[in-house]
Structures are given as structure tokens and as C-alpha cells.
Design a protein around this nucleic acid. Structure first.
Lengths: 345, 345
DNA sequence: AAGCAATAAGTTACCGGTAACGTATGAGAC
DNA sequence: GTCTCATACGTTACCGGTAACTTATTGCTT
């Protein structure tokens, strides 16, 4: 099977033409179905198409004509994080429904990887790009602009995007969470996350969070940024580290719900009561938040919808329909019961 | 930016040639760096490449020559399931490291979607395909065979694959789990899953599981197959349904750990003790299994490694290196403490 | 200084489709 | 009967690279 790595054994339009006794242009017309042939000829050609198992070569079509390809490059930081898996699912479902294909790029949260991937994917003449985040290497931004194709920056809303952007304002979202926790009476608040990069959404979120806490007279002195994935276990041992060094912390804000769950498991294992002894707040309203023994205080972001919205904007732009350049998908605070009830003030 | 949807504004090799005052063949040689030009010419050309921001058109290269593309089509059922997200991550990381690009296809567990996606992706002349599962539509199998490119079927090990296969034997894995639970003294066992299709791994697993349980004198009379995603909440309400209709069940085997976690949360919410009142066994050894209040009884499958192995087999085949056609990646039973201790017999 | 090989180019043709244009055929109008 | 015009095709050229071949230039022998 794989002894012929070259593609020469594939049936081409010319072979169909010869077999049908017509010119390859006629075959092309029949296959595209835009008229200019008789019913008799159509049947003749289609019979040979079926018989020979002809499959079109889209490479040739795109290459030949002015028409754009149906590829859309999608860069995602990583898939271990459920958030991005959901976003990607939303994107691919919607793109697929409109006849587009997703070319995936896992950037591992680095601009360098993203730049390398952009360079490669652009060489495949994609119809458009969907990029996670609003921070890109200068060279990457330049290449993308020069490509002259639609681009949607997602997740971290960019008010002055390369082209289009959909997501939420993470500073505001962080701020709202901070204000809420202050309103619950917490002053000494900790943070556990994994962002080791200033140019990402989690860091922006933390900045907004800190701002709100400080405005409310509290402090987020204890920030722990692990060099690990943002999963359950890092949440567990991150909490252990944080509480060992700072046992007086009243409440912990996590980078996401997975980490918050891990943190909560640590607290429970140490016979601490949540929220009586310590408050726990996550982020993302992931599926697990709804099935924990206590409803996790979190921030709901419509991840699947976000991905779908990105794909919709891309498709609209590609088909020449009008579309907003910037779309705020919004967030909703989930009070939950893993932090104290807010003061009724 | 997007007012020019056609790609004509892209800089081509000819423009670089004119700007450098050489033929386009020379530019091509310089860019590929395989010799046949002077150092002076190289500098001349590279200066223009940088100046004009030339990006190669891989479409043309692949189209023109015999060489295969660097695309690899990867079909995945869905990404809501952490298992497949991990597998995909393993695949893409490894493929990317070897200069290949992933073209994603989400099949939603249906052969029909898979077939449609295969037809489309083959028209892009991919270097190879990685398909989840060993059951495909007849037309799909035929197309794949005719394409004459390497194919790796993953997840559900196929001992007589289309080309190559890597994964585990789900019947055996299910059987081992069934035997273990029988060994723990359970006889009246329930199952909660979401597989509504006979042609998938979960069903095969359940068949092996049932076989072992029956061999041990027990019964899996109560099987609940929900029409939902295999996540936390379906595990929760699936357990509720199952235990409401069959309160005498001693132990429940779940399609995966996420469902098992949801089920455990239901049991805990009803003041049932695990494993004293009811046994809980999951599948997959997902990250959450390690941070639950009790270590979840599960079956470890190296998902990331599986993805990487698939990519490695693909790369080996593409570069003409020898590689096994079938690779069993293995599984390990995690006894955990959410089922009773096995009889020391 | 002539001969010859190595090096550094240029030329031509082609991959598989499609746009643009040219041409044969037949039906209907007069 | 022939003129017109739509219909149903065929022909040619081109997209952006690269393989294969040809040609010009240089350097080194003897």
C-alpha cells in the first residue's frame, strides 16, 4: 500500500476525459455542475468518475484559480486545558459545517512556536486564520497582515485587532471576581496559577483581580505561579505550597476550575471546611464545577459559543457578508457556595 | 485587509527573481539550499526575499512535484472527552516536531461524518491519515486504500488494519476490569455509559467486561446507555437513574472516569459510602482520578503516548523507515479504593 | 595555450485543474 | 434557403513551483 509514496497513481481529470471520450474541460464543467454540457455527456462522464474512483485534487484548483482554499489555520495553546478543547470543538464544528477544514497548531503558550506555525501554515494558502490570544511576535503580526486574509483573534478580546476579535475582557472579568470576593469580606487573598508569561489572558485577569482587591483594601500578596499545566494536581500541590508558607490566607483564587478543584481536594484532605475555613474561587465554569460537592464559585465563559462565534465571523468575512470586527462574548459570575456569602451591603 | 480575497497580492518566486536579476530557477535553488549557486547570488536573492517578504507557496510545490504534502489528516470523535483531547495533543506535538501539520476532523462518533471528512481531506493530497477507531464506512475504507498513503488506526487496536494500528484491545481491557471486580466479591454490577453505537471501543469494552462478569457468576443486567456526552453530569444523573430503578446494585462500572466522578458525587450526595455501600470503577485514569477524595479504581491507558506512537509510526512510514504495523500500547489496572478490596484468593 | 571538468547559471516542460476564448452544430425566424 | 444565435463542446494559456536538460563561465591540467 505505502510502497508508492508519490501520488501519481491518483486518477486525474484527464484520465476521466480520455475514458469518457471528451475533453478535460468538459469533465471539469460536469464536475462543477455549472452547465455547458448535455445530459448525455453528464451521464457519460459521471459513469467514468464512479468507475475510476476519481477524487478531485483541491490543491490544483486552489493553486490554479484566484479562489481561496477552504483551510482555516487555528492556533490553540494546548489541549490539556479543557477550556481550549471546548473552544476548538466549537470552531471545528462550525467551520466543518460550512465546508472548511481546520489546520491545527498547538503553540504551547509561546509566541515563538506561534510564529513558526504561522509561517508554515501561511505557505499552505489558508482562507483565514484563527489565533488564540492578542499578543503575537512582531514578525508573526507582519506576516499575517501581509497575507491579506481574514484573521480572528480569540479568547483575549483585542479592541484593536489585526482584523477581527472575539472573546472577553480578562481584566474586567478578573476585576469583577476580585470585587465579588472583597464583597464577601475577604481581605487576605491568595492566587494559584501557572502563567509564566506576561503576555497572556491569565496574567491580564490576575492584574484586574489584584486591582479590584487592592481597591477594596485587600491584598493579593501571595501569588503562586507554577511551571506546570493548569490541571487538577498542580492545583492540589500549589495549594499545599501556598498554605504552608502563608497559613493565614482566607481565600484562594485559581487560574481555572480544574486547579480550584485540586485545591479544594487538598483543603478537604487537611480537614479544612470550605468555605468556613477557606474560600475557593475558580474560573471558567468548567463541567466539573457543577458536580462538585459544593457548587464552585467561578466565572462562566461560553467557550463553545466563543469558538462558534469565531468561526461564524470567519465565514461571514470569507463570504463577503458584513460582520462586526470586535465581539465581546461576555461572562457571568457564578456565586457558588465555596466562598462566604457576600455582605448584604 | 480582507478586501482582496484572492491571493494575487502574495509575492511569488518570479518577483523575487526579477528583483534579484536572476532566473526563478536560481531563486528556487537558493531557497532550497541544495547548491548550484554562488555565495554572491545567494546573498542577492536572500536580500530580496527578506525585502519583499516572500513566503513560499507549498501548494505549488506539492502540486508540481511527486513529493507528498506534509499534511496529516487526523479524525477524532470529539474533544469534550478528555481522552481524545490528550491523544490529539500527543499526535499534533509529535507531528509538528517533524514538520507535519494536523488537519483536524471531528466525526462526532459517526461513520457518516468520518466518510465525508475523509473524502474532503483526501482531496488535499495529505501525506497520511490517522483515524480513530477500527470501524469505517465501506466507501471510506475503499477511498483510503485507493489513496495509497499511510494510515494509522488508533485507540481501538485493529489486528488486521487498513495499514497500521496502535491502541489497546478494549475487549481484553474490559475483561480484566470485570475479572477484578468479580475478584472483589461483586456479583450484581451495573454499567453507565453513552455508547449508542455497536461499532466503537466502549461497546467492545463492555462486551469484554460482561463476559468476565458472567464467567465469574455475576451479571451486568443493568446497562444504561445515555444519549449524551460522556462527561461528569451524565455520570451523575445516569447513576441516579440506575440506582433508582435498581437499588440493589453493588458496584457500577463507568464508560470513563469523568462519568465515574459524576456518579460518585451522586452517591456521596445521597449519603452513600464508597466503597462500603457501593463500588465505583471508572476507565481511562484521567487526571481527576488521582485527586479524588478516594483514589478512583480505573484502568490506565497512556493516551498522550498513544498519540505520540501513532505520529511516530506515521513519520517512520513516510520516511521509509521500518515500523511495526500493529502496536499494542497496553493498559494497567489501577486498584484504587473506590471498590472493595479483592479477596486474597 | 588548448583541453576538460566542475561550477553556475538559464530554458523548457510539466503537475491538475480552470478562465477565457474559439468553433461546430442545430433550431427557429424570416 | 440562409441568417441568427444559443448550446455544447474543444483549445490555449496560466497558476508557482521544480525536474531535467542545456549553456555559459571559471579554474585547473599538462
Amino acid at each position: 500500500m505505502a510502497d508508492k509514496v508519490n501520488k501519481n497513481n491518483r486518477v486525474s481529470i484527464s484520465e476521466v476525459a480520455v475514458a469518457s471520450g471528451v475533453s478535460k474541460m468538459t469533465v471539469s464543467r460536469v464536475l462543477r455542475g455549472e452547465g455547458g454540457y448535455s445530459e448525455k455527456t453528464r451521464e457519460l462522464v459521471m459513469r467514468q468518475v464512479d468507475k475510476l474512483g476519481y477524487l478531485p485534487n483541491r490543491l490544483a484548483t486552489v493553486f490554479a484559480g484566484d479562489q481561496a482554499s477552504t483551510f482555516v489555520g487555528v492556533s490553540i495553546p494546548d489541549l490539556g486545558n479543557e477550556v481550549f478543547a471546548q473552544v476548538l470543538e466549537g470552531i471545528d464544528r462550525k467551520l466543518g459545517a460550512f465546508g472548511h477544514q481546520t489546520v491545527l497548531g498547538l503553540t504551547q503558550h509561546t509566541q515563538k512556536e506561534e510564529e513558526a506555525w504561522i509561517r508554515t501554515v501561511l505557505s499552505w494558502q489558508p482562507a483565514g486564520l484563527i489565533l488564540t490570544g492578542r499578543f503575537h511576535a512582531p514578525r508573526a503580526s507582519e506576516m499575517v497582515k501581509n497575507a491579506g486574509i481574514p484573521v480572528v483573534e480569540i479568547w483575549d478580546l483585542n479592541s484593536s485587532p489585526l482584523d477581527m476579535s472575539v472573546g472577553i475582557n480578562h481584566f474586567d472579568a478578573g476585576f469583577d471576581m476580585g470585587r465579588y470576593l472583597i464583597g464577601c469580606g475577604y481581605q487576605n487573598i491568595g492566587y494559584v496559577g501557572t502563567s509564566h508569561d506576561t503576555a497572556n489572558a491569565a496574567t491580564t485577569r490576575l492584574a484586574g483581580f489584584s486591582k479590584a482587591v487592592e481597591t477594596g483594601g485587600g491584598a493579593v500578596n501571595k501569588q503562586l505561579c507554577l511551571h506546570d499545566t493548569a490541571g487538577y494536581y498542580p492545583g492540589y500541590y500549589g495549594t499545599e505550597q501556598l498554605l504552608t508558607s502563608s497559613p493565614d490566607i482566607e481565600c484562594i483564587f485559581y487560574q481555572n476550575d480544574a486547579m480550584a478543584f485540586g485545591g479544594m481536594q487538598y483543603c478537604v484532605s487537611k480537614d479544612m471546611c470550605v468555605p468556613e475555613d477557606i474560600g475557593i474561587a475558580g474560573w471558567g465554569d468548567l463541567p466539573i464545577a457543577a458536580v462538585m460537592s459544593k457548587r464552585l464559585t467561578s466565572m462562566h465563559v461560553p467557550h463553545l459559543k466563543l469558538g462558534q462565534a469565531a468561526a461564524e465571523m470567519m465565514i461571514a468575512r470569507l463570504s463577503g457578508e458584513p460582520t462586526a470586527d470586535v465581539r465581546d462574548i461576555g461572562f457571568t459570575l457564578i456565586p457558588g457556595s465555596t466562598v462566604r456569602q457576600p455582605d448584604p451591603s
